[in-house]
Design a protein around this nucleic acid. Structure first.
Lengths: 146, 146
DNA sequence: GTGGTTGCAAAAGCTTTGCAATTGT
DNA sequence: ACAATTGCAAAGCTTTTGCAACCAC
């Protein structure tokens, strides 16, 4: 997903959020990543880019706000006990996660739409979303496992 | 799932696990519940039944062991920051979770098998499992939301 | 200028761990 | 009898919160 420099500021403005340096940095990391990130991942990435003025608690506060505004989603998944966050991009994707090296890759295609319709009819739930991850061993770990 | 009294002891023995009072109690709760439970849920349920000799850390240790032995699975899902555990029963089910009242209900039927085959072919991953939850608003919360 | 935002540090929760006492086989 | 297991308390994590200083609009 390619985005021009002013784009992130626009996204915030469109949601009525002040465009602080910290928020722009967090939003940029979320949009630039092809896999979900932990608050700590984001904090470290931003620090490594030389942006020193940022605290971890601010990252958490910003992520909470993004989730409330539906700019991001918090996926309850635990990776060593940490929550993961990812940008809401409109593209519907899921992740394939290696249980050895914990690397993730995304894939398109989701077979859940028709299941969800069936469930709405049979249960009376008003379905708003879902979470799905697939686990396995990636080709590299499979190869080096011998 | 109906099980006779000795069954839980047998399950432990079959996995080479000593049948302590605490382990039997935890296993029973896991098997009796139709929805995943947190360590704390289990601790409280057992306490409420008058079994006083049990500490929360023991519940965690037992659950860890069950997961290692594949008697239970830990689903990374967070419910107020807590991990959920459920018994491995052989029946493949998923949960429908109300985002208002957090009640869960299980449903059978999983549309993922063919997707997983496709992914194995296209990515080279050796797929071992998946996690899927569907979120929405349950009929009762929908009704009372006015 | 002013209300919203941040950094820091401390608190709050869930989970894990060390160790002495206890228990199941 | 002996190794494995437990309870307790303390530590380790991630995440949240209070408050004074700061900043975007």
């Amino acid at each position: 997903m390619v985005r021009d420099a002013g784009c992130y500021r626009d996204i915030l403005a469109a949601n009525g959020i002040k465009g602080t340096r910290q928020r722009l940095a967090v939003l940029k990391e979320l949009y630039s990543s092809s896999v979900p990130l932990t608050a700590d991942d984001i904090y470290i990435k931003i620090h490594d880019k030389g942006q020193e003025n940022l605290s971890l608690s601010t990252v958490y506060r910003i992520l909470d706000m993004f989730v409330k505004k539906e700019i991001a989603v918090k996926s309850g998944l635990i990776q060593g006990g940490k929550a993961l966050y990812e940008a809401v991009t409109g593209v519907h994707r899921h992740n394939l996660i290696c249980i050895k090296c914990h690397r993730m890759m995304s894939f398109d295609g989701c077979p859940l739409e028709s299941l969800e319709k069936d469930l709405e009819n049979s249960t009376g739930f008003h379905i708003s979303g879902h979470r799905m991850e697939i686990y396995g061993i990636c080709p590299e770990c499979e190869r080096s496992k011998s």
